[in-house]
Computed example of a mutant assay.
Amino acid sequence: MKNLVPLAALVGLLAVSVPAHAQTARLGYVPTEDHPVGMASVFFAEKVKEKTDGRITIETFGNGVLGSEPQLQSSIQGGFLDVMVGPTSNLVGTVPEYLIFDLPFFYPDFEAVDAVMDGDVGKFLFERLDTEMGIVGLAYWDNGFRHITNAVRPINTIEDLSGLKIRVIPNPLFLSTFETLGTNPVPLPYPELYNALESGAVEAQETPVGLIHSSRFYEVQDHLALTGHVYTPFVLLASKRWFDGLSDEDRAAVLEAAQEAAVYQRDLSRSDADRLTGLLEEEGMQVTRLTEEEMAKLRERVAPVVERFSEEIGTDLVQQARAAMDAVAD
Rank of each mutant, 00 (worst) to 15 (best):
L125R: 06
T232W: 07
R289G: 01
E179A: 14
S176C: 10
P70I: 01
L276D: 06
V235N: 05
T183F: 08
V230Y: 14
F217E: 09
T207H: 14
E206C: 06
F61N: 00
L99G: 10
A115M: 05
L211G: 11
V48R: 04
I169W: 05
G228Y: 09
E300K: 15
L197W: 00
S89W: 11
T60H: 07
A257M: 09
V30E: 08
L14C: 01
V230G: 12
E311Q: 09
P170L: 03
V42D: 06
E59I: 05
T207K: 12
L72I: 13
P19Q: 04
A258M: 09
Q73A: 08
T177H: 11
P87R: 13
E307Q: 14
R241Q: 15
Y29N: 07
V254R: 03
P108V: 02
F44T: 00
D120S: 14
R167N: 12
Q73C: 05
A139H: 01
E219H: 13
M117C: 09
Y98T: 11
V92E: 12
L175K: 08
Y140S: 04
K51I: 01
L246N: 07
I76A: 03
D142P: 01
V116W: 11
L10R: 03
D316T: 11
S199G: 14
F174V: 10
E97D: 13
L237R: 05
F145Y: 08
K123G: 12
V11I: 08
K123D: 15
G144P: 00
F124N: 13
P187S: 06
L246E: 00
S74I: 07
G93R: 10
F80W: 11
M133F: 06
E311R: 12
R241T: 14
P104E: 02
L27T: 12
G134S: 12
I169H: 11
I135T: 03
K49Q: 15
S239N: 04
F234G: 07
E203H: 13
G28Y: 07
L81A: 11
T315N: 08
E219T: 14
L129T: 03
L290I: 04
Y264G: 04
V168G: 10
S214L: 01
M1Y: 04
N184A: 09
G278A: 10
S269Q: 03
D160G: 11
P154N: 09
F80C: 10
H223F: 15
P191W: 02
M39E: 13
P70L: 00
F44L: 03
T24F: 13
R322Q: 15
M117Q: 12
L236W: 03
R241K: 14
E59M: 10
F105H: 08
D102R: 10
E293H: 03
R128P: 05
